[in-house]
Design a protein around this nucleic acid. Sequence first.
DNA 1: ATCTATTTTTAGCTTTGTCTAAATTTAATT
DNA 2: AATTAAATTTAGACAAAGCTAAAAATAGAT
Lengths: 218, 218
Amino acid sequence: MTRSEENYLKTIFHLGGGDSKSITTNAIAEQMETKPSSVTDMAKKLSEKGLVDYVRYQGVSLTEVGVKTALSIIRKHRLWEVFLVKKLDFTWDEVHEVAEQLEHIKSEKLIDKLDELLDFPKYDPHGDPIPTKDGKFQERDEKLLSEIPINSQGVCVGVKDSSVPFLKFLDKNKIALGNTIKVLDKEDFDNSLRIQMEGKEMRISHQIAANLYVKKND
Amino acid sequence: MTRSEENYLKTIFHLGGGDSKSITTNAIAEQMETKPSSVTDMAKKLSEKGLVDYVRYQGVSLTEVGVKTALSIIRKHRLWEVFLVKKLDFTWDEVHEVAEQLEHIKSEKLIDKLDELLDFPKYDPHGDPIPTKDGKFQERDEKLLSEIPINSQGVCVGVKDSSVPFLKFLDKNKIALGNTIKVLDKEDFDNSLRIQMEGKEMRISHQIAANLYVKKND
DNA sequence: ATCTATTTTTAGCTTTGTCTAAATTTAATT
DNA sequence: AATTAAATTTAGACAAAGCTAAAAATAGAT
């Protein structure tokens, strides 16, 4: 497993190729900021190795082994993210880049012991679930804040967009995972929301609400 | 800085190329288990980049920048080794391989914070000094156990050979860093030593004694 | 000082992962 | 059903890092 192969598997998984859905070379190329022709080359290679099913001109999807491999990389990525935040005081907008490197370190013992050190966390700093050693996901019934009705409330449990600018915006506005948010009102005109959070009232745009996951509790 | 370039710098440093001593391509090739011709190629490349001084047929030595770079990699390697032992319960014979991977992770913040988490350790699990952030070494006046006179004693502070078999041998014989060792007698015939360690008497071969560093205290 | 034996370099080839440009296939539209 | 636009693949090239085999330089021995 080269680093590059691992990155392809991870990307294909994130684009939905784990559910035997075909992902186009174009989509993969765009996501990875590379060229479709390079993706084609790698598709053949991964197909040879039995990690993806590849049909010319149709795209790729992960095989069972491919899914398992992708999950193990995602597991490593997210565990390292937790480590960086919990043990080394990184902020949630700083962890991704470093975890992209750390996820490729090869040592089963390392990752098992890291998991133990962190007390077997279930979610990473962005609220994304950490697959277990045997590749299981803990699903959670979460909804986008933009999709829950007026007067209902929930706990903020994750972000959909985990780009640095969005995360910094959330920090600046004191929106953090764990906060309870209540939808007071929605504005028809621009779909913005009036919310109550930790005692304070504020207005957020639809774009923000559409990137925050909440777990409803009423 | 590619991974490969970093490995070359580290090797050259370990072979003494930091003291403007010329290291032959052959020596480097042997150490790295590669071919002399490959070393020549890399020597040119590193020379281009100003990291080594290279004279055809004479060998390479590190420039000032080269030394600084090598030390920063060695610093990372040794800090990760401490992390693995102190935080993840690795044994001292397991850490090298994983640290070889971790040393190439690029993030200044990561290594600074790791240093802090570990409480700014001065030595790695094998007793090798950890360079400071600004590339200083803490020297220690240590001697090989094989070189101290009869009836003197010292604390075991490091190993010269840190191969897995040697480290496992030491574990098996309860020889650990921190132990106080007294030389009771030397055998002329095979240069083996009779020593007293932590109350017990034992005999060790010259080869063992020549790979243990002690700090004399009488 | 010359001649070997050894060391080191050069030249040319291989693999991995990428790219560009051209060719091909698919899909959409009339 | 034919044509065109878009997506995808192929072919050929390149850089990095390595290798082998041949050539060149050095060092040691006479």
